[in-house]
Every structure is written in structure tokens, then in C-alpha cells.
């Protein structure tokens, strides 16, 4: 699926809609350069899942975990990871990500997945890529 959004709000809305499609246990891998809207998208996902907390950039802390106030299907928590500063799969293990992938009650989203995607054990993810459009606030979002 390919979508063009024209503002951060539109990207958030798209993510809110998409949030309804997940059952739990999925791993979403976001690709796209600095400022392409990955974090904005995750903010939308969180909203779509009913999370009230502020979702800010996990670049520094690497991983943030948000509990859903009420389960959506089987999902009870959203795990937001940022691989901007990571090098390889070993580092995913070091931050304890293993505990959250393939869990029926968890939706995992990783920004900058391309940094670690080559690694076999992490290859099974749903790819969502973000690209800058012709005009400043346009983003082309490609969901595989």
C-alpha cells in the first residue's frame, strides 16, 4: 500500500487507522531518513491503541514501553525502539528486545530498522518506509 500524506496530522491519522489492523505479536520496521516522520507515525499508533502517555523520541534511551489502558484485541503493550545508535543484532539483545518480540500481547515498532535488518533473526518484520515528497510537508509512506 502506498499513501501520500500532507501533514504530520495526516500521518498520525493514517497510523491511528492502521493500529486497528494489528492483532499482537507483530514487528513493524520503519525506514526513512531524519525527519521523515517515523516518530510521528508511532505517536499515531500509540493514540490508535488508546495510549494516553506522551510518546517521544527513543533515540537516546533506545527503547520505551507503553502499557495500553485497555487491551486492543490481544495487545496490551507497545514497545517503541530506535536503532539510530545501534549497530547489530547483538545490541538488540543487549537492550533486552528478545523479551518482547513474538509475544502475542505486544506490538513492537523499530525506527531505523534498516540499520539492523540484515541480521537473520530480525528479518521477519513488516516494512514501512517513509520518503520525502516534492513539497516540504508531503511524505510518501509505503507499507509492504
Amino acid at each position: 500500500m502506498k499513501k501520500v500524506t500532507h501533514s504530520a496530522t495526516e500521518t498520525k491519522k493514517l497510523a491511528i487507522e492502521l493500529a486497528k489492523n494489528f492483532k499482537g505479536g507483530e514487528l513493524l520496521g520503519l525506514e526513512g531518513d531524519l525527519g521523515s516522520g517515523k516518530t510521528v507515525f508511532v505517536q499515531g499508533l500509540a493514540k490508535g491503541l488508546g495510549i494516553k502517555e506522551k510518546v517521544n523520541s527513543p533515540t537516546f534511551v533506545l527503547m520505551k514501553i507503553y502499557q495500553l489502558p485497555k487491551a486492543v484485541k490481544q495487545i496490551t503493550q507497545l514497545v517503541h525502539v530506535d536503532a539510530y545508535r545501534l549497530q547489530g543484532a547483538q545490541e538488540f539483545k543487549d537492550i533486552g528486545l528478545d523479551e518482547y518480540t513474538d509475544k502475542k500481547n505486544t506490538l513492537v515498532v523499530i525506527e531505523w530498522i534498516d540499520k539492523v535488518a540484515k541480521v537473520k533473526s530480525w528479518a521477519k518484520y513488516k516494512q514501512i518506509s517513509f520518503n520525502f515528497g516534492e513539497k516540504p510537508n508531503n511524505r510518501t509512506i509505503l507499507i509492504k
Binding site: 531524519l34 506522551k54 523520541s57 537516546f60
Partner: peptide
């Protein structure tokens, strides 16, 4: 109050990267 997205130091780092 706090940041809603990037931290200040992160903004400095990312702009330097750009």
C-alpha cells in the same frame, strides 16, 4: 513540562548530522 518528541541535545546531534 517536557519535550513531546526530540530532546534538545538530540536536536543538536541530528542537525549536526544533517
Amino acid at each position: 513540562g517536557q519535550t513531546r518528541d526530540d530532546a534538545v541535545g538530540e536536536a543538536f546531534d541530528k542537525v549536526a548530522k544533517l
